[in-house]
C-alpha cells in the first residue's frame, strides 16, 4: 500500500501549525490511524502537518491546582508511565494501557487518540470495497452501508482515552487560527455525528488537556470490551469515576454468593459512591456522559441490585449499529457486565 502524494510540513509552533492548516490538510499526531486511512484512500490530504516538533505540545506538568496538564503530542506510553508512578493517577494509567499495543502506544499520542476519527466496518475498507458498494455517507455518498436507509452516519467513536478523560472531568485547550485559545470540557469536543465527530475546525489544534486532581477517595475503572487483549479498538467501554466512602464494616455476606445469579460476586458490596461520573464509549458516534447514571449512584451503597439498575440504565442509553467486529446483541448484553465490573472496582 502506498500513501497518496502529499506535502509534509513540520511547523515549530502551534500558531504556525494553525496558519498552515486548511480543509485540504491533516495534522499528524502519531499517525497510527491517519496513515492507515490515507493508505486506504479514505483521506488524501494535500498537506500533512506534523506536530511532533512543536515543543509546547509535549510533556506532562502539574497545574497550579495540583492537577495535570498533558501536552497533546505526549505519547500514550509517556502518560501511562508517568501516571503509573503517581498513585492518585495510577488508575488512569491502567486505562491507557488498554489502548492498542505497546508499540502503537509508543507512537500514538494523547491528542491523536482523543481526536480519533470514527470507525465503521463498512468505512474502514480498501478501495476495492468502494468500487463495488460505492461511497458511504461518511465519504460523501448517499448510502449508509451499516444501517439500511439511514440518513445519518453510524460510525463509532473508538478512542480509548475520551471516556476516561470525560469521567475525570478533563478539559481541553484548543488553539484557533486567529491565534486565540479556548478551553472546553473534553466531553464538548464531540459533535455526536459520525461523519465529523470532532467539533474542531480544520485549522484548530488540540494543544493540551487538563485533568483536575482527583479527590483523595477517588476510584476509577475503565472496562473495555474487546476480542483480543492487544491491538483491538473497544467494542464498548464503561468508565466510572467516583468518590468512595470506605465501608464501615467488612463486606457482609462475602461467603454467600447468591445462588440465583450466575457468576454472582459478593465483592460488589459495601462502597458508597459520591459524585460519580459514568461515561460510555465505543457505543456510538461520540462518547456518552450519563449524568443520570451519576444521579442513580449518588450516595447509594453498592450492591447487586444497584449493579443491575446501573446496567439496565446504561443498556437503555445505547443503540448499537451492526458495524463493529462483534454483533449488536452481544455488545448490548455486555454493557451490564462492564458496568458491574466497574462497580466492583469501586469496592476493591
Amino acid at each position: 500500500m502506498t500513501l497518496p502524494r502529499f506535502e509534509y510540513l513540520a511547523p515549530a509552533s502551534v500558531e504556525e501549525a494553525c496558519a498552515l492548516a486548511d480543509v485540504d490538510s491533516a495534522f499528524l499526531a502519531g499517525g497510527t490511524d491517519l496513515l492507515v486511512c490515507m493508505k486506504q484512500r479514505l483521506h488524501a490530504p494535500l498537506r500533512v502537518i506534523g506536530l511532533a516538533g512543536i515543543a509546547e505540545l509535549r510533556g506532562i506538568a502539574r497545574t497550579d491546582e495540583d492537577g495535570l496538564r498533558v501536552g497533546a503530542a505526549t505519547t500514550l506510553t509517556e502518560l501511562a508511565d508517568w501516571a503509573s508512578t503517581h498513585p492518585e493517577w495510577a488508575s488512569l494509567s491502567d486505562a491507557i494501557r488498554q489502548t492498542s499495543s505497546p508499540l502503537l502506544r509508543n507512537a500514538g499520542t494523547v491528542g491523536g487518540n482523543l481526536c480519533l476519527d470514527t470507525r465503521c466496518t463498512f468505512y474502514n475498507q480498501p478501495p476495492i470495497f468502494r468500487a463495488r458498494w460505492g461511497p458511504c455517507l461518511k465519504l460523501g455518498g448517499g448510502t449508509c452501508h451499516a444501517v439500511r436507509r439511514s440518513t445519518s452516519c453510524h460510525a463509532v467513536y473508538s478512542g480509548d482515552l475520551a471516556g476516561p478523560l470525560i469521567a475525570w472531568s478533563a478539559t481541553a485547550t484548543i488553539a484557533t487560527a486567529e491565534g486565540r485559545r479556548r478551553k472546553l470540557a473534553v466531553n464538548d469536543l464531540f459533535t455526536g455525528e459520525g461523519i465529523h465527530p470532532l467539533g474542531l475546525g480544520p485549522d484548530e489544534i488540540l494543544v493540551e488537556i487538563e485533568i483536575p486532581k482527583p479527590p483523595p477517595t477517588t476510584r476509577f475503572s475503565y472496562q473495555k470490551l474487546r476480542l483480543r487483549d492487544t491491538l483491538d479498538f473497544p467494542l464498548a467501554g464503561v468508565s466510572l469515576f467516583a468518590e468512595v466512602d470506605t465501608p464501615e464494616v467488612d463486606a457482609p455476606g462475602a461467603d454467600t454468593p447468591r445462588p440465583d445469579t450466575p457468576g454472582a460476586d459478593a465483592s460488589v458490596v459495601g462502597a458508597r459512591l459520591h459524585g460519580a461520573r459514568v461515561v460510555l464509549n465505543a457505543t456510538g458516534p461520540a462518547p456518552l456522559l450519563l449524568p443520570e447514571a451519576g444521579a442513580l449512584l449518588e450516595g447509594r451503597e453498592v450492591d447487586e441490585a444497584l449493579a443491575v439498575e446501573l446496567g439496565e440504565l446504561l443498556q437503555k442509553s445505547v443503540k448499537f449499529a451492526g458495524n463493529t467486529a462483534a454483533g449488536s446483541t452481544y455488545r448490548k448484553a455486555m454493557i451490564p457486565v462492564l458496568a458491574r465490573r466497574a462497580l466492583r472496582d469501586m469496592c476493591r
Partner: peptide, 26 residues
Amino acid sequence: TETIQRRRGQTMNASFLEYRMPTALD
C-alpha cells in the same frame, strides 16, 4: 479468534487489525 468475515462474497476483514491472529502478547 480467526475467521474471514464475508458479506456477499466480499472479505470484510482484510487487515491484521480486523483479522485477529494471536499476537505475541496473546
